[in-house]
Amino acid sequence: MSCTLSTRTLVVMPTRDRLLALLVAVTWGLNFPAIHLTLQQFPPFLAVALRFAVIAVPTLLLAPRPRVPVRWLLLYGTGFGVLQFVFLYAAMDAGMPTGLASLVLQSSAPFTVVLAAALLRERVTPRQAVGVLVAVVGLTGIALHRAGLEGGATLVPVLLTLCGGLGWALGNLGNRLATRAAPRESFRLMLWMSVVPPVPMLALSLTLEGPDRITASFDGLTTPTGLAALGGLAFTVLVATVGGSGVWTALMSRHPAGVVAPFSMLVPVVGIGSSWLLLHEATAPAELAWGALVVAGVLLGSTARRRPAGPEPARQPWGTTSAVAIAATPSPRPVSPSPSVVVAETVTGAPTAIDRTA
């Protein structure tokens, strides 16, 4: 497959997509208090298994598998579903404050940008780099302030949460690669991603948490604690996973990972605020100031200046490629030396060859 490629291209994220990314950030920020409620009743690894099993069972029965290479689906499910949540839930169960967990997990954004640049050859523009740097400064300021208020987080929960952020970043890459192969199947891809975690997470729960603890966690589900745990589980499944992850997957299919990922830096702003309102965790005006810096960095990194170098093509429909090419000197797109390797074009991030075999 060949097509022309302009020497000067510009990636522009439409306002609608930025608003959708913001909505996902709010949803995922509220997800942390919901996880906290779930962990009051269920052990962490069982909670992850339940979270995805609720989606996996109807998916296996009703949804055809998306036509993407199995390895990308496994990478997506393992990174996003297993590694992210096994470390996050373990960290929160070990005492990681809910608001601080929502902050540290956003290490996934710089992890994603770096991994996408290194492995997918997605270009990081100076504007995006500055935006990510500004947001990271804001996140660091919130982290230092939170650590001081909480008396300092222990090293192990922080390291566990950072590992969860790295797992999320790996899942983002699997998502990106899979949606390139089937950009119109992003929702089914998200559903089938949920098929990956339940079995390994249940095995991990049986091994480390034990049958007795698992059985005891189903007692008292009609108590206020049990009902709150079920409500938190329902929120993580229906709103955060099906709704939020479905929209996130669609956005990743339309835009380079380095453009979408910085929006996840807004999650700790919502997570800290909601934890203060719902769980009475301490907050302070200084955190709001650092949070405003995070917002500024995300907006800077997710927008770009238009250059009048030529006519702009018509807007692409939902589920198609996201790059806006500005006409200049056309040149043929290079072809990957092997069809089993997806090579991202260094400017637009579009694949040059896609292996569609499973």
Rank of each mutant, 00 (worst) to 15 (best):
R127T: 15
S108T: 06
V136W: 13
V86A: 14
P110W: 02
F111T: 00
Y89N: 10
A94V: 11
L177E: 12
G79A: 02
T179M: 10
G131V: 14
N175Y: 05
V132H: 08
T98S: 11
A135S: 12
F85Y: 12
T161V: 15
A116M: 01
G171S: 06
D93C: 12
R121L: 14
A90V: 09
Q84N: 13
F85R: 07
P157L: 14
V158L: 12
T112L: 01
L115C: 11
G171Y: 01
G167L: 06
V132R: 10
T125I: 10
L149P: 00
L204R: 01
V132G: 09
E209Y: 11
F187G: 04
M201W: 02
A101P: 04
E150T: 13
P97V: 13
A94H: 08
F80V: 00
Q106F: 04
Q128E: 15
P211G: 14
G174A: 08
W168M: 08
T179Q: 04
S108Q: 12
N172W: 05
V196R: 00
P110C: 03
C163G: 15
V136I: 07
V137F: 14
G79H: 05
V195L: 02
A147F: 13
Q106R: 14
T78G: 06
M190H: 01
M96V: 13
V113H: 00
L162R: 07
L173Q: 08
L139K: 09
V114F: 03
G81H: 03
L115A: 13
G79L: 03
A178I: 06
V114M: 07
R121M: 13
M193P: 03
L166G: 11
R123N: 13
E122A: 09
P157D: 01
V136H: 11
E185T: 11
L149S: 02
V137R: 09
L139M: 15
V82R: 05
P211N: 15
V196M: 04
W192K: 02
V130Q: 07
T207H: 01
L170P: 05
L83Q: 07
Y76D: 00
L204I: 02
R180V: 02
A181F: 05
M201E: 03
L204D: 00
G152V: 05
R188E: 01
G77E: 01
A94L: 15
